[in-house]
Simulated assay, not measured.
Amino acid sequence: MKTFGGPALFLDRSDINTDEIIPAKYLTEITKEDLKPYLLEDLKLPGFDPKAEKTRSAGVVVARANFGCGSSREHAPWVFEVNGITAVIAESFARIFRQNMFNCGMAAIELPAGQIDKLFGYADVADASIAIDVEGQRLTIKGGGREESVSFEISPFDKALVLAGGWVDYADTKY
């Protein structure tokens, strides 16, 4: 079974759009693997470097509201997937981006602003990591000798998509 989570990458901004996740000029690439080096290439945040080891080793992204707004391209979840990022946690998501995450077998977890603020309390902790139990609808953040658990909601259908590995795998088992 797929594990969800890993080292946490904190992107402290709302409205991170799909052009910042994967610039449009790379949408002509043939395979998902070809997208890999361009993850978050156009994202502008103070102190953020898309080529830094912290970015390249991330397993989960934590951000603010309206994550994945902009174009409805599947390439945005794909570039996370090919870089080993299995989940994004935010206050809210653009509807199509969120569904594309589920359809690709990845977790898009919505939490209230107060819970997101608590997660950002770990942003400066070098060893911050998040383990996600999709089945149990619970995540645990650890780092700096601290640990906290948070429950989250996900619809039964979206949970089934994620646990199956995405829409294609889900359909293979059901139809």
Rank of each mutant, 00 (worst) to 15 (best):
K2F: 13
L9R: 10
F10W: 04
D12I: 09
D12L: 15
R13T: 13
S14W: 05
D15I: 14
T18V: 12
I21Y: 07
I22Y: 06
K25H: 13
T28W: 13
L35M: 05
L35R: 00
L39W: 06
L39M: 10
E41I: 08
L45V: 09
P46H: 10
G47A: 11
F48C: 06
F48R: 11
P50G: 04
P50L: 09
A52Q: 13
S57F: 04
V60P: 00
A63R: 03
S71H: 01
S71K: 05
R73A: 09
A76F: 03
P77F: 07
P77V: 07
W78G: 02
F80Q: 04
F80Y: 12
E81T: 09
G84M: 07
G84P: 06
I85E: 06
T86D: 02
A87Y: 03
A90F: 00
A90V: 09
S92V: 06
F93E: 11
N103G: 14
C104H: 15
G105M: 06
G105Q: 08
G105T: 12
M106Y: 01
A107D: 02
E110I: 03
E110W: 10
P112V: 02
G114F: 12
K118Q: 15
G121F: 04
Y122R: 04
A123W: 07
V125G: 04
S129G: 15
I130F: 03
I130P: 04
I130V: 11
I132P: 01
D133C: 08
V134N: 02
E135I: 01
G136D: 01
Q137P: 04
R138P: 00
G143N: 04
G143H: 00
R146A: 15
E147D: 11
F157W: 14
V162I: 11
A164D: 07
G166K: 05
W167A: 14
D169Y: 13
D169P: 10
D169R: 15
A171W: 15
D172Q: 13
Y175V: 13
